[in-house]
Computed example of a mutant assay.
Amino acid sequence: MRCLLILFLTLWAPMVPAQTNEVDLELLLLVDVSRSMSPRELEIQRRGYAEALSDPEVIDAILNGLTGRIALSYVEWAGADSIRPVVDWTIIDSAADARAFAGAIDATFRNSMRRTSISGALGYGINTLNENDIDGLRRVIDISGDGPNNHGGDVRIARDRAVAAGIVVNGLPLMTRDGIGTRWHLENLDDYYRACVIGGPGAFVLPVLSWVEFAPAIKRKLILEIAGDTPRLWQAQAILPDAYDCLIGEKIWRRNRVYELP
């Protein structure tokens, strides 16, 4: 009898699925908290992400994927040396997981930080995606910001490193003008993101023109990223990399560095 039991277990064991960290998507949410953002904007932004991640349509998109699970991390960034993880990599495979992640975001509120280093944030994103123990079928960095890069190196180099590593970079330019002075404002921030920040197959930009639009925009963006659909309307097509001055943020900061705001 014992021999038969051992034989059965030997034959049955290969049929048991191995426990892995395979997910449909590794999605890193890089959220701008530079000093150009007002406390009100920071609060709207944090709650907007929490609201979107709790939305039934977003949860359905997560659960209806190939594996029915994704991995998320939520990180705040400003200058190259001012990057702080708020919620580390977490596998989401249920509505309860999604709501718990949203609750962890909404429970955290910290002050803004100095400067704006999109390049530093992308560099951090590449490292954390390469170093986590998760095996994603796709890897996406979702970066929001209300101004161009002005610290930490050329944003194009960081973007190209991400794309070379198989990471798609999508952009959420915040063009509300609520908390930023005119001297720091970049009128065509969406064009800057298209030309200088986003990259990879199907990469897209979704501008936010008012804070009323923020939560719906986050929801729409998350569904597109989780479902893996190609959002043709917002894809970067019109602007060639050499047709836009991707160092405009550094030039604006040098011109106004006496204020040293963003």
Rank of each mutant, 00 (worst) to 15 (best):
S94T: 15
R156H: 01
S94R: 11
S94Q: 09
A52G: 03
L72G: 07
D97N: 14
D160I: 06
A61G: 02
A158K: 11
I134F: 12
R47M: 08
R161I: 09
I126Y: 13
A165E: 15
I44N: 04
N130G: 11
I143K: 12
Y74F: 15
D160S: 14
R161W: 09
R99S: 07
I134W: 09
R159W: 11
R115S: 05
R156V: 15
G166H: 13
N127M: 09
Q45F: 02
D106P: 01
G103R: 09
D160F: 11
A96Y: 06
L137N: 13
Q45M: 02
D97G: 10
I59C: 01
D135I: 10
G48Q: 04
T90K: 04
D160Y: 05
T108D: 09
L137W: 02
I92E: 01
I126Q: 10
I83K: 04
A165N: 14
G166S: 12
D135M: 03
R99I: 15
T108K: 12
R40M: 05
R69C: 03
A50W: 06
A121I: 12
S73T: 11
A95H: 04
T108N: 12
M37C: 02
R110E: 07
W77C: 03
W89H: 06
P85K: 08
L137P: 00
W77E: 01
D106C: 02
E76K: 13
I126S: 03
D55H: 14
S112Y: 03
E131R: 14
Q45D: 02
G65V: 08
L42S: 06
D133Q: 13
G48K: 03
A71E: 02
W89N: 05
F101S: 03
S54M: 04
M37V: 10
S82D: 13
I62Q: 01
L53R: 08
D55I: 10
R139F: 02
N127P: 00
R46L: 06
R115E: 00
D146F: 05
V155S: 05
L129C: 08
Y74T: 07
D93N: 15
I70A: 08
G153V: 14
L129W: 10
S38W: 09
